[in-house]
């Protein structure tokens, strides 16, 4: 195969857009205590950026940049960050209690630990979803193609990502 993935139009558009989508995901997560959104929504949007890259450039090239192992480590870091925020609350009396100044209503610096928790969830959900996408897209099809080859059949060329 000369090039994996989709045409150069799609690839170049993806190069332009993917970064903006990722920044938007962080924005959605960080303002989750003021407007609709939050860590989970942000994480899903982040994963959408990764899905775009995956579709445009194909599984192997995406995996060279972003392996499943990296996703595991980042995912674990997000979860542990969330636990750390909960433990910080234990220092203030009870589990998950707020230990930061509450700030002023309708300003960015409000909501105490909520913004931090949203950030941790963004990392966790984003990395987790990207890991799921990589696992399903790359391993699923790669194993399928290998199995078909082993049986002496020629699999659909579209699957050779």
């Amino acid at each position: 195969m000369k090039h994996a993935g989709m045409t150069s139009i799609v690839q170049n558009t993806t190069r332009l857009v993917a970064g903006f989508i990722a920044v938007f995901a962080v924005y959605i997560a960080l303002t989750g205590h003021l407007s609709p959104g939050g860590g989970f929504a942000g994480g899903v949007i982040l994963a959408a950026a990764a899905a775009l890259v995956l579709l445009a450039f194909g599984g192997r090239r995406t995996q060279a940049v972003l392996s499943e192992g990296t996703c595991h480590v980042v995912d674990a870091a997000g979860a542990l960050g969330f636990v750390a925020i909960a433990l910080g609350g234990l220092g203030a009396g009870v589990f998950f209690a707020n230990f930061l100044p509450l700030g002023e209503l309708h300003r960015f610096a409000s909501g105490g630990t909520i913004a931090l928790a949203n950030l941790a969830i963004l990392v966790k959900v984003g990395a987790g979803l990207v890991g799921v996408l990589l696992a399903l897209a790359v391993y699923g099809t790669a194993r399928y193609v290998a199995a078909e080859r082993a049986r002496g059949e020629s699999p659909d060329p579209f699957l050779e990502i």
Partner: peptide, 12 residues
Amino acid sequence: ALMVAMAIRLWE
């Protein structure tokens, strides 16, 4: 995600 992963393995 788990269901789809299992479906792939079932097919294999």
